[in-house]
Nucleic acid binder design. Structure first.
Length: 507
RNA sequence: CGGGAUGUAGCGCAGCUCGGUAGCGCGUUCGGUUCGGGACCGAAAGGUCGCUGGUUCAAAUCCAGUCAUCCCGACCA
């Protein structure tokens, strides 16, 4: 059988990026489409990533003073109608519950019955239902700030769905806070944006740009929406988290009022912020390669796959006993205050097939152990951030003492790789023809990966935004918070501009 | 929701133009040889051809409808 160089994932990113994305998810057993339109089944390996995201973020939320609570999945339609912009923003993607029971239809099937007096909306986000509770909880300035987070599922009836990136139902967390002053609420909004950015960069190894959304991309009902934007390997932008300053808009519609120190009754100031299972989509598209998933060690479901190699039952007994002992030693080591997670894989497949299976799943380290290693007290170690053939022999002692450094080194490499990719695909562009060329594929029938982030001047006029969107499907992803003030002219209309913004095609 | 395409075994596909006993590859199961880079040999199991109706002696194949999926738009975390 002629062995040839091939990739584990077909097609490759270059050949067909969208299909590559689906195949990575399939090969890594992260999720699959379900029998329910637009809804995914998250499989154990994928769900474990979400659980790790939850665990780390939850701790960060606690550290910043937030408490978890849970509110209903159903929102009375009348609640929804209270905030005009909010309704308008979500009206087109609501799932609505109108009946409460099923009855025999006399033909062997069931028919819906028991029409509700008022329809319920399955929450697409919870500002209005949580606001109703907050109105009861907040009476005095002494009740503030109120800092709440909810881990939940939400439903947005999207027309076109993609696993993790856009599904009809998705898992997320939504923070909802209430403050006595505008200033305090703004501080909270920015603080949580920072939490997201820190989490994305330090745990997901995902470089992000913090910025503010333009009017057209703002959360329905918000005064200001801030976001973290990241670049995927097809050079498109993915909004990876948002934090909203809601002003008094929702406080007014939900009647969240408090008596201040001076005795006046005032409307409160609220914020909301969230990240979702979309982050897993970001991980896939930012880090994975043509051999499958690449998972940053800090968020990986398991850190090390131990792969015993043997020729017969006698060898298997010997090797397995060695491997189990090594597994226990590794498992007792603590990485970021958690035990190292080890997978011992002695499935009845050839060793290389088992090894490839873990490569596709994105496990950070593969450790192969055969009879030769038993004799010499060594193991073969393969890193997911390096070529699959690039394995190193090291002593068991070395592995045990260096494993944490290796994992952290992989984490760092993955981050730096993503950062370098973003850097080389981000360009200052000041000429619309150049801008156009940047965002126009050379082969329009089968568009190749093209474009990237353009850092260009924008006058702030929505008309220019719309024109660029219509011309090139490119939008302002954000106005970076760290943008330096400089004089320039709008890439679109030529009018004066004070700062550059980030343009890109996006998900 | 508009434009395009596709539904045949767990997965990927052929067969359809020109109607006549359901095929291939991978995977699965069993037996054996293998096992440090995606193994091999042999045997076997597995499908009311998306669904409904029509034409016909006969439909995977022709016709109509319907549902679903994918791609491109619009919408969006």
């Amino acid at each position: 059988m002629a062995k040839q160089v091939r990739t584990a994932i077909e097609p490759t990113r270059e050949q067909n990026y969208a299909e590559w994305y689906q195949q990575v998810i399939k090969a890594a057993e992260l999720a699959e489409n379900s029998d329910v339109r637009g809804c995914m089944v998250i499989k154990p390996w994928g769900f474990a990533i979400w659980e790790n995201i939850q665990r780390v973020l939850d701790e960060m939320f606690r550290e910043t003073g937030h408490k978890n609570a849970y509110f209903p999945i159903f929102i009375p339609k009348s609640f929804f109608e209270k905030e005009a912009e909010h309704v308008e923003g979500f009206a087109k993607e609501c799932a609505i519950v109108t009946h409460s029971r099923l009855e025999d239809d006399g033909k062997g099937g069931l028919k819906v019955a028991g029409e509700l007096a008022e329809p319920y909306i399955v929450r697409p986000t919870s500002e209005t239902i949580i606001g109703a509770s907050f109105a009861r909880w907040v009476n005095s300035y002494r009740d503030l700030p109120l800092l709440i987070n909810q881990w939940a599922n939400v439903v947005r009836w999207e027309l076109r769905t993609r696993l993790f990136l856009r599904t009809a139902e998705f898992l997320w967390q939504e923070g909802h806070t209430v403050h006595a002053t505008s200033e305090e609420a703004v501080v909270e909004t920015m603080k949580m944006l920072d939490v997201y950015a820190t989490f994305a960069e330090e745990y997901l190894a995902l470089p992000v740009i913090k910025g503010e959304k333009t009017d057209s991309e703002r959360f329905p009902g918000a005064i200001a929406t801030y976001c973290i934007e990241s670049m995927m390997q097809d050079r498109k932008a993915l909004q990876s988290g948002t934090s909203h300053f809601l002003g008094q808009n929702f406080a007014k519609s939900s009647q969240i009022k408090f008596q201040s120190q001076t005795g006046d009754v005032e409307y409160a100031w609220t914020t909301s912020w969230g990240v979702s299972t979309r982050l897993i989509g970001a991980l896939i598209m930012a880090h994975s390669d043509d051999n499958g998933m690449v998972i940053p060690p800090r968020i990986a479901p398991a850190h090390i796959a131990l792969i015993p190699i043997y020729k017969n039952d006698e060898e298997k007994v010997e090797v397995m006993s060695f491997v189990k002992e090594l597994g226990e030693k590794l498992h007792s080591i603590r990485y970021l205050e958690q035990k190292l997670r080890i997978e011992i894989d002695n499935r009845d497949m050839t060793s290389s097939e088992r090894s490839w299976s873990w490569i596709k799943h994105g496990i950070p380290l593969r450790v192969e152990i055969g009879m030769r290693d038993l004799a010499s007290g060594t193991v073969m170690v393969g890193r997911r951030d390096q070529d699959s053939k690039d394995k190193k022999s090291m002593s068991v002692e070395e592995l045990l003492t260096q494993v944490l450094d290796i994992l952290e080194d992989i984490q760092k490499t993955i981050y730096e790789r993503a950062l370098a990719f973003r850097s080389i695909n981000t360009h200052k562009i000041d000429d619309y023809e150049q801008f156009k060329a940047f965002y126009t594929p050379k082969n329009s029938n089968e568009p190749e990966i093209h474009g990237g982030f353009a850092s260009s001047h924008w006058c702030g006029d929505g008309a220019c935004e719309t024109k660029i969107k219509e011309d090139l499907k490119v939008t302002v992803r954000c106005i970076p918070l760290d943008a330096v003030l400089e004089d320039g002219i709008c890439i679109c209309c030529g009018k004066p501009s004070k700062r550059r913004v980030i343009f890109a095609k996006s998900y």
